[in-house]
């Protein structure tokens, strides 16, 4: 079943320059999809549209089979978690556990049910030892993990990560990527859409969608997408390290068979 179904979406902040042009895509339940593009490609706008933050959207959008309209918004949002870029600007409360509780309060979850949920999701994201910590004493990566915990507490079907790692240091990035891997394993039904310009992260996804100037230019498995080095260069994106290296090796005349799909295989092949 398609969890997100978008047909002919058009959107513009200002009439002259459309931000999104004729976007059509569908995202299956349980998939991990990376939406990549350079800054200004329209990828974050797309995330905000899916979260229902914009009103004048042209086109046909269905999320969880519900048309994205005002009357469905509460229902859609109750099954959708979104984590934004800036770790500080989404931390509402003054401690970790209270921030996780914020969403639960909004959904009028009875008080006695809150603590077990908070403990569970805090453990899922590895923040169980920091339940009382204040945001100013946490690293960026930790704050983003709390934000993810806050969404997980709502048992979402869809997790939207809007450049959730772009302001983090390498440690923080790694923490979040490891967490994504873990969530995929613990909860295979969860659909994750990650908006990013980090191609290394995109390489971990099931599907990659490349956005440029408001249009989808590539959509496929990471392997398929990253094979189009020319197009990627055109839209100002790098290829992941592995793909770049294969291209560089081939340019040097070192043959790399096509069945080598990742860095480990390449290592094995070169050291044979």
């Amino acid at each position: 079943m398609a969890l997100i179904e978008i047909n002919n979406l058009n959107f513009a902040y200002d009439e002259e320059r459309p931000t999104l042009k004729n976007i059509s895509l569908s995202i299956e339940a349980g998939k991990y999809v990376a939406l990549i593009g350079h800054n200004g490609s329209g990828k974050s706008t797309l995330a905000k549209i899916i979260a229902g933050l914009f009103k004048k959207v042209e086109g046909d959008i269905k999320i969880f089979d519900l048309p994205l309209q005002k009357e469905n918004l509460v229902k859609i949002r109750s099954q959708l978690g979104i984590v934004f870029q800036n770790p500080d600007n989404q931390f509402v409360a003054s401690s970790v556990k209270e921030d996780i509780a914020f969403g639960l309060e909004n959904r009028a979850i009875p008080h006695d049910e809150m603590d077990p949920i908070i403990n569970e999701v805090a453990e899922e994201v590895g923040m169980e030892k920091f339940l009382d910590a204040a945001p100013e004493n946490l690293s960026g990566g930790q704050k983003q993990r709390v934000a993810i915990a806050g969404t997980l507490a709502m048992k979402p079907r869809l997790l939207l990560l809007d450049e959730a790692t772009s302001m983090l240091d390498p440690r923080g990035k790694k923490e979040i990527l490891n967490l994504i891997r873990k969530m995929r394993k613990d909860n295979p039904e969860l659909t994750i859409v990650s908006i990013t310009h980090d191609v290394e992260e995109a390489a971990l996804a099931d599907e990659v969608i490349v956005l440029n100037d408001g249009e989808i230019v590539l959509h496929g498995t990471p392997e398929e997408v990253f094979a189009h080095r020319d197009i990627l260069a055109q839209v100002r994106l790098d290829a992941p390290f592995f793909d770049s290296l294969v291209v560089a090796l081939k340019a040097e005349g070192v043959a790399v068979p096509d069945d080598i799909k990742d860095i480990k295989a390449l290592e094995d092949y070169l050291c044979r």
């Binding site: 933050l53 949002r77 709502m154």
Partner: peptide, 16 residues
Amino acid sequence: AMECRGYDPKGKRTKY
């Protein structure tokens, strides 16, 4: 972020 997390000042809320 608050809107996406379902905050509605007029809505029924519980307190943690």
